[in-house]
């Protein structure tokens, strides 16, 4: 049983019945604070140097730097974790079936099966998988955060976002969704037309990354519609 956050974690039976779990990230709401990334590291005991979730800047050539010349500046954030593709190239590539697609749409990793060949990382067009080049180092140690929810990973295996499989199988939201201070991350069943994610995707223009590669990602970005230039905002 997962640790529950009182007042926030309310089990939702719909998540347990889902056939295609997916996520929608609202670029109008995302402020690029990395709370999701930090919560993810804590929840999943991700080692130093590894990230299951990172917040990419769509704009200039460095983090948090907009594109353009003042006042016509544009910037948005593309917070990125595993896209849990419907046609996952990593699952095809894995020679030992260590990475696999679950019936609810989650692409999961069996850390006891992985031989560390890193072919899945080669196959992923999104760089969403990370490798334990050394025995994972946690700071603060895993023992002072959430204990025992995530299987420990040895050195030499690949890991990545699992949509917090331990929490979602209990009907709880992934930790990054809970942690987001602006409600930019929305989670639900893409196959359910009445789920919040499906409604948002119907109502708002959205995109997925590299649609031409046919991977069919389950993580969609709602395109920024608000004033996107400083001049416009002022």
């Amino acid at each position: 049983m997962s640790t529950s956050y009182v007042g926030i974690d309310v089990p939702d039976p719909a998540l347990q019945k889902a056939t295609r779990l997916g996520m929608v990230v609202d670029q109008d709401r995302c402020i690029g604070c990395w709370s999701c990334a930090v919560a993810c590291k804590e929840q999943q005991d991700v080692g130093i140097g590894l990230y299951w979730l990172r917040v990419l800047t769509v704009g200039g050539d460095a983090m948090d730097v907009p594109a353009g010349t003042f006042p016509a500046l544009t910037m948005s954030y593309q917070s990125t974790n595993c896209f849990h593709c419907d046609n996952p190239p990593c699952v095809k590539a894995c020679p030992t079936q260590a990475t696999y697609k679950m019936p609810n749409g989650i692409v999961n990793v069996n850390y006891d099966r992985c031989i560390g060949c890193r072919y899945c990382m080669v196959a992923c067009p999104y760089d969403n998988r990370v490798f334990n080049w050394r025995a994972p180092v946690q700071e603060p140690p895993a023992s002072v955060t959430v204990v025992g929810e995530t299987p420990a990973r040895p050195k030499g295996v690949v890991e990545k976002c699992t949509f917090c499989v331990q929490r979602t199988s209990d009907g709880l939201l992934p930790r990054c969704v809970v942690a987001c201070p602006t409600g930019a991350r929305v989670f639900g069943d893409l196959d359910d037309p009445n789920s919040k994610v499906s409604i948002l995707l119907r109502d708002r223009p959205s995109y997925v990354v590299f649609p031409e590669r046919g991977t069919k990602p389950s993580l969609h970005y709602l395109i920024r519609q608000g004033p996107n230039t400083v001049g416009g905002a002022l």
């Binding site: 140097g49 990172r54 990419l56 800047t57 769509v58 460095a62 983090m63 760089d127 990354v209």
Partner: peptide, 15 residues
């Protein structure tokens, strides 16, 4: 050459 070149890029695995 990273498939995704948006900053800050790919986590490298070690600091």
């Amino acid at each position: 050459k990273d498939p995704i070149t948006l900053p800050p890029g790919t986590p490298l695995g070690t600091p």
